[in-house]
């Protein structure tokens, strides 16, 4: 598995797209900091970017990589290598290179701007953790889509749809249902609904840090228990880990049963 991981990783590291992705974050980080002159405001803007762009790029990158290296995968399958290590190696290669671009691309401008001396260090590291989780989750989901769809166009369509659904449509439906059922007690429902979408979950994690004073404005014991204590942070992190593990597990199962 490690050999395949190494191969995928260095293959991607040599490719143009990793550099583009890295440079994008590098420029974004520098521009944000030099235009704003304020680390805490930059963190807010960065949150919006991470929550939307990281899933999109991970999804597209993952699905493209899978389809592009399909012939190579088939060649590997002819060798005496375990299937799980082939797919896990590839998956780790893709997500690893994306993670590296993200962390370095954002880390360098912030560190050079004096992050370690600022109070925003916790907010920033939370952003990086959330970004890493989103990278892993969405790469894994896109691999799942790719392995279930032989047709490239279809797979690509599903992947983009997945992103669109998670990033925009889900929240729309969520809001509609909250307004339609506003007569009913909704606090448990609204927290539960957040859990079923990794993007919402990541957003909640960051909100806990940035907007806690607004979140505590709502009268409700469930909200207060969730947002007012460490319970919110712990549950959200735990569920993010779960969100990462389940698609990876399905990827392994599926790859072992699939007839190539």
């Amino acid at each position: 598995m490690f050999k395949i991981f190494k191969y995928s990783f260095f293959d991607l590291m040599r490719s143009r797209w990793s550099y583009v992705y890295f440079l994008f974050y590098l420029i974004l980080g520098f521009v944000l900091l030099f235009l704003n002159n304020d680390v805490s405001k930059a963190v807010i803007t960065l949150m919006n970017v991470i929550i939307i762009l990281v899933p999109l790029i991970s999804t597209i990158f993952g699905i493209m990589y899978y389809y592009n290296s399909k012939e190579f995968t088939e060649l590997l399958l002819a060798q005496p290598i375990r299937r799980s290590s082939i797919f896990m190696g590839q998956f780790l290669g893709v997500s690893g290179s994306l993670l590296l671009s993200l962390v370095l691309g954002l880390g360098i401008p912030f560190v050079s701007y004096g992050l370690f001396k600022s109070t925003a260090i916790f907010d920033f590291s939370l952003l990086l953790v959330v970004g890493s989780f989103l990278t892993i989750i969405f790469t894994a989901l896109s691999f799942n889509i790719a392995i279930s769809n032989e047709n490239k166009i279809k797979g690509f369509g599903y992947a983009v749809l997945l992103w669109l659904f998670m990033a925009v449509i889900y929240d729309g439906l969520f809001l509609m249902s909250l307004i339609v059922f506003e007569e009913y007690p909704l606090d448990t429902f609204s927290i539960a609904a957040t859990m079923f979408n990794p993007i919402d979950l990541s957003r909640t994690l960051i909100l806990l840090k940035l907007d806690i004073s607004a979140l505590l404005g709502y009268t409700g014991a469930v909200f207060k228990g969730f947002f007012g204590t460490n319970l919110g942070l712990m549950t959200s992190l735990l569920l993010l880990i779960l969100w990462a593990l389940i698609p990876i597990w399905r990827l392994i199962i599926k790859s072992q049963k699939k007839d190539f």
Binding site: M47, N48, I51, I52, A167, V168, I169, D171, G172, F174, L175, L178, I179, E182, L186, D187, F189, S190, I191, T194, I199, D200, R203, T204, I206, L207, L210, D211, A214, L215, G217, Y218, T219, G220
Partner: peptide, 20 residues
Amino acid sequence: YVVNRTPETIVLLRSLFMDI
């Protein structure tokens, strides 16, 4: 305005849909 009407929607703070 939405939060005033349905306070639970506060969990959607800063989501892309709300921004749109």
